[in-house]
Every structure is written in structure tokens, then in C-alpha cells.
Design a protein around this nucleic acid. Structure first.
Lengths: 217, 217, 217, 217
DNA sequence: TATGAATGAGCATTCATTCAT
DNA sequence: CATGAATGAATGCTCATTCAT
């Protein structure tokens, strides 16, 4: 329905702005332009509304992130530049307003909604990590990177990229200067490459096969 | 006073358990074994109480973390082992119940208390990062590590160490298996050394365990 | 609505009985037979409720008083009797329970609601004084009274009528004996006539024209 | 004691400013510079304190008023001027800050303290009325005034004097312009003399200034 | 389906009062 | 005598929820 979307959109704004506990259904109803009971008709209670909202943000964030990975270079000649590009896209997803709000809400209400954490994790970051791991594995197979555990590498790639962002954005409540964002990404990619780039004297080619598999002794 | 400490301790528990908005002074008073007005006499209102509590946890967490760094090896022969040891201590601080609660509360209430973020940051993580950076710089000076920006390296060290912990502990609400924690730390230290360890053809120190694979020349 | 009137009526009773500060919304709600939030839905908060109540009593009192003046004799042969009659009606309005309560509440809360005084004054006594002044001016024009400033005369008429009433009714908290009320009125009218009755040796007729206008040297 | 007076003085200010219900012992204690229990030691409870305060203001107001009557002219050649003078003094007592506060407090709390009304009345206005009645009786005996019931005349004298003052001072919460006060007094004295001055064709006293218009024969 | 109206429960806060010191 | 500390009780107000329409 039309109203249903209006309610979820309004709830998303209000929950993000005020948190679950302080958000009032009156505010949400007013902001959605509907009467309070309509919220109950469509979504039944505050708790259920919250779950729907989180699912919604998680889905959106996930879609955005997967889209950012869609054009991941699988056979780049300029590896660093390409990682910087894709890293910047990921970092932009990370500092995205809704993505930040989602993280804040999860932290805030995990005690009240312990199940939501896994739901969100599976619907979002885990998928992204898997996708990213696949891309990194291809680069490893192509000999550009030396990676034993692609999932781990993917997680660490993201960790290095987003390292400074919470502090720089006050947990996502302050906008970040694009230059600062790029610098943070560059720093993360730099360290990532120091750790995982295949030494360049062995030019390109597919030698690093064993690097992906089980390690020797 | 005695009561004052009891109030802060109880408030800490209740805020951590229920969040700022849902925590009620009745609950805190009951859990502290005092009457409600006593909270007002000592700490003046809910907001002030919350600030005191956060400051308290932040101070404790910081002290714990700085203590963990106190015995940082400055001239180790077994670099990896030593980094694993200190990394484990840091990770233990990270997954500490109070430290996790602090992070959750900060995320939850940063919209209501925008100033608290910087306060906590300065009283905690920033000091730890600086201390850690100093230790890493010494190791670099001694030729064990190749580091240009110690602050950045310190931040990335922590990022790599704690990478998996939020997911493994459900944002600090579930205890973590010590073995899992150690594995996560090892993985982080491993990548850190791949990125920053000085190449081993330099005589100092043992080679960084072949399992990691050849480091870039 | 029905409930709205019930709330205002109950609030009127409770405020009159206990004063603004001591009156509790719980009491008012109970006495009105509604739940507390209903008061907020209809009238928004204690202060607003108080304003509505005062406006209500002021309007009622004013209507009563103006009605009492409606039948004011404009050409009486028995001037004293007629003034006694109208004076008694006015005095009855003055000692009326609600009118007294209004005066008490105004005195009590003028510090908290400085604006209410003028509001009530304009919606009540001032209108009555003007109406009364008009009636007195007609009597003066008809030669029965000698009045230069009808507004002043009206005020003084009321002052003389109500002179003893506060003390006799304990500021409106005790009922007054009708005989006592009549005696007080008679005394006031008596003095009023001593001051303003045109000397009777000039029988009736319209001679006192100049008395209303500017006085001689 | 010193403290006792400080408490009463502070309570007087606070009660006058905020009313009985809203005045808090904390405020009074702070304003008096004592600890709260000290109020209990000296004056036992809020209600008792209030009684003491009212008695105190009543006594002061009464003293002031009686002093204003002390120099009442008993054999004046300029009757009107003398009545204006004494009337002005009485009116000044009436608009006095403390006297006004006393009236407001009495109105406000007569429901809670029904007995206080008579206490204050006897300790104040009644004494003043008696004193004034005595003075007026002397003037009547001297042939200047024609008065049958001096008490009644005294009450009416005051009523005519103070007629406009409540409206002009917003029940004593706004200061009054001295010129306005004098004009109000003059108007009251004028009407009083029209009612009670012995006709001037009798030799005693100067004629009552034609501005008043002819007095009834 | 959508809503205006109503409510029971709960919250932060304040206050008059007492007690140990 | 004076006070710091503590508290039971009450108050204004808000909220999630329901029901009749």
C-alpha cells in the first residue's frame, strides 16, 4: 500500500533520529501523515514496526553495497587504482546515512532484540563479504594477490578501509569531507596491498595457485 | 560516598542492559538499594547520571587498555609471539563486558548526547592508540617493523585485531570462546606482520614463519 | 464534547476548592470521570486547563451580572427602592459561589498568570461597570441623580454595595444570610444616594444637565 | 533568634512570590541561608511557618495603617484637604507591597486555612476601621460630618478610597503611579464628602468646594 | 481500511518531612 | 542547635495500545 510505505519511511527517519525507546508512535504517525491506529493495522505494534524498518534499511544497504561490488575489476592492470576505486565505493556505503543509522540502531537495541543482529548480518554484511571474497579470490587466482583465506581477506579489507570512519563521522552523525574519505580509503588499500599484493618481480601470471589453498606446514 | 558508588554501579548495569531511554530511575534506584530522590541528591537527574556512568566506564576501559599496553615488548626476539600476546590482551579489553556496553551506549545515544562521543574518544581509544603507536615506533626504530605513520599503523593493528569480534560476540552481548578470540587475534597479527614486518633477509629476528607466505620484496 | 464539559466542570470545582498549585490532575480526572490523558487530549496540560476554567467562570459571572443589570430602572419614581433592587441583584452576583471562586483564584495565581487578570477584568467587571454607568447616566439625565463621571459613579456604587461582603462571607467561602446581604446593600445604596441623589426640592424634570458636563470653576 | 527572623523574612518573600502551594521549603531555606531542618526546629512544618508569616505581615500592615491614622485631624478647618491627606496615607498602606501580598495569600489559601481569615481581619482591618470610625465620629461631633453609624462610614470611606486600586495595580503586583493614586483618593474623598459632609450653610467649616456640585439640602 | 477518542501504566522529577550526627 | 543525607508520596506528563465508528 501507499500508506504502508509512508509509515515505514517515516518510522525509519524517526527511529534513526531518536532511537527505538524515545521514538513515539505519535511522531511516526504524524510524520507519515496517518492516524496512529493505521500503524497497528498495517504493521502491528511498535516492536514489529521496528523489525520491518530494520529489515528495510538492511536490504537497502545491502543492495547498495552489492551494487558497489558489481563492477569489481577481476583482471586489472592497475591493481591499486582499482582497489582504491572499489574501496571508495564501499566506504561510501559505510558512511551512508541509512547504513550508519542501521549500525547505531543495532547497537542500541541488540539487548532488546537479540535476534535482529543475525538477521541483519546475514542480509547485509555477510553477503557483501562473500561477494568481496569472491572478487579477491579471482585476483589471487590471477596472480595479483596472495591470499590464503579470501573471506578473512575480504573482512580485513573492509576493516582497513573503514578503520577511521566511525571517529571521523561521529558514528555516522556528521558528514565527512570527501577528501578525508578518499585519504582514509587510500591508507587502507595501501596496507592491504602491503599485506596481500603478490611481489611484482614475479610479473603476472597464474603461479600463486597454492597460495589460495592450504598452506604448507 | 558509599551510596554514590552503588548508584553509579547500578546505573551502569541498568543502562547497559536496557539503554538510556528504557532504563528507569526506579529500576536503578531499586538495584542500587536507595530511594529515588537519593539519585537526584547525588547525581542530579537522569541525563547527568548517564554522563557520569559513561565517564566512569570510559575511564575504567581506558585504564584496562593502557595496562594491557604497559608490558608491550620493545625489543622482542619473537616478534610474532609478542604481538600475539599483546594483541590478545587488547582484544580481551575490546570484548570486555563493560567496554562493549560502552560502545553500545555510545552508538545508541550519540544522537541525544553528541558531545559524549568526543569525550569518550579522548578519554579512551585515542590515548590507547597513541600509546600503541609509540610502542610500534620503537619496534620500527629497532628495525623489526617498517612503519611510516605509527598512528595509522596502530589504528590498523587494532582494526585487524578486532575485525571479527563484533560479529562473534553479537556486539558484545555474547561471551566469546577463548580459542576463537585467540584465532581472531592471530589472524589480525598475521596480516599486520605481512604488511609491516621488515623483510627477514635482514638478520634481526627469526623469519616470520613461512606459513604466511613470502612477503613483498 | 460531553467529556470536555465534564472536565471543565470538575476542574472548576477542584481549582476553586484547592487552588491551582494544590489541585492535582488526578483529582480532576477522577472527579470528571475520565482518564488523565483525556484531559491532555482535550485541553492540553494543567496551565491551559486553568486558563479555560477561568475564562469559563468569568464568562458565566459576566453573563449573570449583565443579566442583573438588564432590568435596570431608567425612569423610576421610587429611586431608592429600585436601586436597592438592582443593588441586591448585583450583590448576589458578587457573593455567588463561582464569582467568589474566580476572585480567589485570580488573587492566588496572578503571580503565575499575570495576563489572566486583564483578560478576566475585560471579560467581566469592566463590561458590567460600563453597563451600570450607562444606566446611571440615564438617571442623571432624567434629573434623578447628579453625576459628573458615570464610570466613576458606577464603580463607587459597586464598591459601596459590596463593601462588607468579603468579610461577611469569608471571601466567599461561607454562605451569607439573605437579610444580612440586604442590609449591606441598603447601607451601600443609602450612602450612594446621599452622595449622588439630586436634591428633591427641585422635584423631577431635566434640570441637572450641567451636572453631567464640566463643572463650574 | 537571628535565624528565626531570617527564616520568616525569607518565607514571607517566597510565599508572597509563589503562593503557599508552590513555595518550596528548599527555596525558603536557601533564601534564608539555613538548612531545611532548621525551619522545622524553629517553626515546625510548612503550615505553621505559613501561619507565622501571615501573622507577621498582618501585624506589620496593621501597624503601618494605625500609624497612618495617628495624625488624623480632629478639628480641621480644611476638611477636604485633611481627608485627602489621610486618605492618601491609607491608600498607600493598601497598595503597599506586603499588604497586597497578604491579601493575595489570604484569598489564595482561605480554603486551606479557613481560620486565618478572622485572625488577620481582627489583627488588621478591623482595628483600623475602629480607629478610623473614632476619628470620623469626632469630626461628626464637631459638626463637620453628618454620620449616624461611624463604623459603617469608616468602612465606606476605605471602600471609596481603594475602589480603583486593585485594578490599577493588578491586585498589587504592579507599582502604581503616585499621581494616579492621588487621583483615586481624591475621587473617593470627594464622594465621601458628598455623602457625609454637613451642609455648608451651617457656619462651621469652609464650603466643600463647588467643584463637587451642590450637596443635597 | 482508517480514524478520533479514550485509557492504564509508567516516567522523571519534586517536596515535606525525618533521622543520625 | 544546626545540618547533610535520605525517603515515601505525589505530580504533571507521555506513551503504546485499543475500541467504536
Amino acid at each position: 500500500m501507499d500508506k504502508r510505505q509512508a509509515i515505514i519511511a517515516a518510522a525509519l527517519r524517526v527511529f534513526a533520529r531518536e532511537g527505538y525507546g524515545q521514538a513515539s508512535l505519535d511522531t511516526i504517525a504524524a510524520e507519515a501523515g496517518v492516524a496512529k491506529p493505521t500503524i497497528y493495522n498495517h504493521l502491528g505494534g511498535k516492536e514489529n514496526l521496528f523489525r520491518h524498518v530494520l529489515a528495510e534499511i538492511a536490504a537497502r544497504s545491502n543492495a547498495k553495497t552489492l551494487a558497489a561490488l558489481q563492477t569489481f575489476p577481476t583482471d586489472p592492470h592497475e591493481l591499486r587504482d582499482h582497489l582504491n576505486t572499489v574501496g571508495l565505493r564501499l566506504a561510501e556505503c559505510f558512511v551512508d546515512e541509512q547504513s550508519s543509522a542501521l549500525r547505531r540502531l543495532l547497537h542500541a537495541e541488540i539487548a532488546r532484540f537479540p535476534d535482529l543482529f543475525d538477521v541483519v548480518l546475514d542480509s547485509g554484511p555477510n553477503q557483501a563479504t562473500e561477494a568481496l571474497a569472491g572478487r579477491l579470490a579471482r585476483l589471487a587466482n590471477a596472480g595479483y594477490l596472495t591470499i590464503e583465506d579470501p573471506i578473512r581477506a575480504a573482512r580485513q579489507f573492509v576493516a582497513l578501509l573503514t578503520d577511521e570512519l566511525p571517529a571521523m563521522t561521529a558514528l555516522g552523525t556528521r558528514p565527512i569531507n570527501p577528501d578525508d574519505l578518499e585519504r582514509a580509503v587510500t591508507a587502507g588499500v595501501d596496507t592491504f596491498l602491503r599485506a596481500f599484493a603478490t611481489p611484482t618481480d614475479a610479473p603476472a601470471g597464474p603461479p600463486a595457485r597454492e597460495a589460495v589453498g592450504p598452506l604448507p606446514g
